[in-house]
Structures are given as structure tokens and as C-alpha cells.
Amino acid sequence: MIPDIWAMPSGFPELAPGQVQVWRLRTDRDPRAGLALLSPAERRRAEGFRTELMRARHVAAHAAVRLLLGRALGVPGDQLRFGQNAWGKPELVGPDSGGGDLRFNLSHSGDWALVAMARGIDVGVDVELVSDPPPIEVASMVYSAAERAALAALSGPALTAAFYAIWTRKEALSKGLGLGFSIDFASFGVSPEPSLGISRPLLPPKLEAAAGWHLVDLPPIDGAAGALAVPGGDLEVSAWRFEAGLWGL
């Protein structure tokens, strides 16, 4: 179930029920090809960024989502329409949505983006650029008491690895549940151990809807950390590289 490398596909791999695909891409690329795929609203959001690099990253990430979902559905990516749930999680809507069966999640940080996709189940993914030392003040706001205690016993690279393992696992779970910042991040816990393969969150009663969710480690990402959240422990997870020029982006 747990992928150990980011594989390069020879074509678009089939996405069958019970499978989860996670795609890794760099977003520091010429945005012109991607712009043609975006909706007018997405282009306006891109224009609102302060720098060219930030605009390019936004365009690349959202164009890749359209290309990947379009491939999975067999429709042009620029025809896809998106809405949001009550807490702001993006979702496909309209006649090309696959009947609501195809679910996805996007995360991007710095030059990296991750896109997770599955049929019939929600998924959550997170990627974060790693800084050493980490912004440990974040822990006082959104980490549980047990997580903070675990970090207090560490230093150096071990502290950095544990800090980002916690961060990405928490973010991936909250995004998978689609509840956004309505979740009190300090109210639930995840393991600080960086290399578990698959783990379970420690949840309070009010998050009983997440009882079946698992947290999956992803293959290494240069200068970043990532995690995947899935609503079951028996799903087949694959990790793919989305390279520049693939399918025209």
C-alpha cells in the first residue's frame, strides 16, 4: 500500500475504485501553457499574487489539477467546473464531474505541489517546505500537549523531522475530512515519528467521523515533507511524478 518512490508513468495510469493516486510536481515553470486551462476566476486569482513566481506556482498547480482530473474522466481539463463544500474544500460539479465520484485534493508549498485523487472516497494531502530550525512557535498554537512534549525531547534534525511529520499529517487529515479550520488542531493528535509508513490519528469524541482514517507517509520530496490521509487502511496508494511537458503542461 505504501509507495517508496515517485514513479514516472509511461501514460496515464488507470484510477480504479479502491486506489489513490498522489502526483508530485514542481510549480516553478512557465505559466503560459497552463493559463489556457484555467477558468476566468482562476486567472483572476493568479493575477492577484504579488510576484511573477507566485503567479506561476498558482497557475502550474491548478492547471495540473485540471489535466489530471480531465485524464481520469476522459474530458478536456478546461471544461471542468469546480465548487466548494460548506467549509471551502474544492470539489467537482456539473456534468463532467464523474457523477461526484471523482474526489481530489491539492496542496502546494514553495516550488512543490501534490495532487491526490480517488474514486468514491475523500482524500487529503499536504506538502510543506522544510526549514531548519522549524517554526517551533506554531506548535504552541496547533499541536496537542502530547505532540509538544514529544518535540521538547528532541533537537536538531530529529526535531525538524518530527515537527513536519506532525504538521503535514494534521493538515492532510483536516483537508481529507473537508472541515477546514473548523477543526481545533490541538484537539487531536498524530504520531511525531517521521517514518511510520501508515499510522492512525488520536481523536476526541467530536471527531468520531474520522475514526477510520489513516495517515500515509509519502516518498521523500527534496526540501519538503508530505503526508496523505485516507479513510481506510486497505487502499492501494501509488505515487507518480508529473514532469514538465507531460500532457502539454
Rank of each mutant, 00 (worst) to 15 (best):
R50E: 10
G34D: 03
Q21S: 11
A41I: 04
A33E: 15
S39N: 10
D30Y: 02
A36P: 09
L25R: 01
T27F: 04
R24A: 14
R24C: 09
R32D: 15
L38Q: 06
Q19N: 10
R24S: 11
E47N: 13
V22Y: 00
R44I: 07
Q19A: 13
P31S: 03
V22Q: 03
G34H: 04
Q21N: 10
R50I: 11
A33S: 14
P31L: 00
R43W: 01
T27Y: 06
R32K: 14
G48T: 07
R24N: 07
R50P: 03
P40S: 02
G34C: 05
A41H: 09
L38I: 09
V22H: 04
T27V: 10
D28F: 05
T27M: 01
Q21E: 11
A41Y: 07
P40A: 07
L35V: 12
R24T: 00
R24I: 01
E47I: 08
V22D: 00
A36C: 11
R50L: 14
R45G: 03
F49T: 08
V22I: 15
S39H: 12
D30M: 02
R26S: 11
R26T: 09
R44D: 14
L25H: 03
A41S: 12
R32L: 15
D28H: 03
G34N: 08
R26Y: 08
Q21G: 06
E42W: 03
V20T: 09
W23R: 06
L38E: 07
V22G: 02
E47D: 15
R50Q: 11
T51E: 04
F49L: 04
R43H: 12
Q19L: 09
A33Y: 05
W23K: 01
R44K: 12
Q19W: 03
Q19S: 13
S39K: 09
P40D: 09
P40T: 06
R29T: 15
A36Y: 08
E47H: 11
A41F: 01
G48F: 10
T51S: 15
R43Q: 14
P40L: 04
A46H: 07
G18R: 06
R45L: 11
V20N: 04
R45F: 12
